[in-house]
Design a binder for these strands. Structure first.
Lengths: 115, 115
DNA sequence: ATTTAATGCAACCCAAGGGTTGCGTTTCCA
DNA sequence: TGGAAACGCAACCCTTGGGTTGCATTAAAT
């Protein structure tokens, strides 16, 4: 494993679209659904949804473009599943921010103590 | 610390706007800037920005609505700073998803092994 | 008292996003 | 072989969102 991971969302440019993809209620529900219920077809995923099948298709495409899900064609249906690595990317980015955050708090604390 | 933290973005309904606020490059830069450089006024934060002061103001408002930053009026300027707990919320939510994710992978592995 | 710096507010522009409907295409199945 | 199921595609609608400009307001500075 090299110093710079290929899919590590280290830069803001990469992280923003990832969070944007997560920033929708329907898409988060889809992720939660895939996560707890396993892979599923579009019809299956949109069955208990408030929204139409095409809307779900669009959301899946957004998640796919963000690298969070992927799909394969099986017969006449398309089965979608999660792509674990990308979620780890978001996770890592938040870790990085959190670290800076803590350092900022530490500096602030030191400044206060020095007065 | 009780069982249910007051600001834990446990439900999708709460987490989505949080991620949406993080899903913009300019806003992520603002967060990174506040995180590494400490609190700053609008003029200060928009000084090295490609975008106008009003645009920055709008982004700060979005972050504020998401609970990620807060501001105080000091003289004729308004100073913005980070709100650590909300970022922890996003962090916790990703942790929760990751856990489900891993469980899903475990189940999949077992299914494969049983065949 | 004037000027200047820092913001707030409002109107406006345009592109993107979430949603829908309608119809065509492919595949299963009876 | 003739539906019916599952999906893809395209057009359209309306709202949201990011961005700008212009002007009013408040507070520091000289």
């Amino acid at each position: 494993m090299s110093k710079t991971k290929p899919h590590a969302a280290s830069r803001v440019r990469d992280a923003a679209p990832l969070f944007a993809a997560l920033g929708d209620e329907t898409r988060l529900r889809l992720i939660a659904r895939l996560s707890s219920g396993g892979p599923g077809s579009i019809a299956h995923l949109s069955a208990k949804s408030e929204v139409s099948r095409q809307a779900i298709t669009k959301h899946l495409r957004v998640l796919s473009n963000a690298g969070l899900v992927s799909s394969i064609r099986r017969g006449r249906e398309r089965v979608w599943d999660l792509e674990p690595e990308r979620l780890a990317d978001a996770h890592n980015y938040l870790n990085r921010i959190s670290r800076q955050w803590d350092e900022a708090l530490d500096r602030l604390k030191k400044l206060v103590e020095e007065e």
